[in-house]
């Protein structure tokens, strides 16, 4: 299992596309090693479509499905509104 703590590992920027891209690279790296990943959002609200689009939705470009997203990534203590935006961004990118 790979662990990411957003507040700690993305302190200073958990908003931009650049930060989202960094997160996606971590996810893909973990996946290449057949590891699941736990992303801890505790104590933080993201409220950024850019971060979710770049970090999660663009996994669709690497062949990820919604099913794979749900089985490979544990979203710990994510704000319900953040979860809604995240899923909507994935849907927008054609992730099914």
């Amino acid at each position: 299992m790979t662990y990411v703590n957003i507040r700690k590992d993305f302190s200073g920027d958990y908003v931009t596309r650049a930060a989202g891209e960094d997160l996606r690279k971590i996810i893909l790296e973990a996946d290449s090693k057949n590891r699941k990943i736990e992303i801890d959002f505790s104590g933080i609200t993201i409220a950024s479509t850019s971060f979710f689009d770049e970090g999660f939705a663009k996994l669709a470009d690497s062949g990820w499905t919604m099913e794979k997203l749900k089985t490979q990534i544990i979203l710990k203590e994510i704000n319900p509104r953040d979860r809604m935006i995240l899923l909507e961004m994935c849907n927008n990118r054609g992730m099914r």
Partner: peptide, 20 residues
């Protein structure tokens, strides 16, 4: 409300990125 606060954060985050 939490809804308005979240909307405010979403707005400011997008505007901040657009400006940047």
């Amino acid at each position: 409300s939490e809804d308005i606060l979240y909307a405010g954060k979403l707005i400011i985050n997008e505007l901040m990125q657009n400006s940047h």
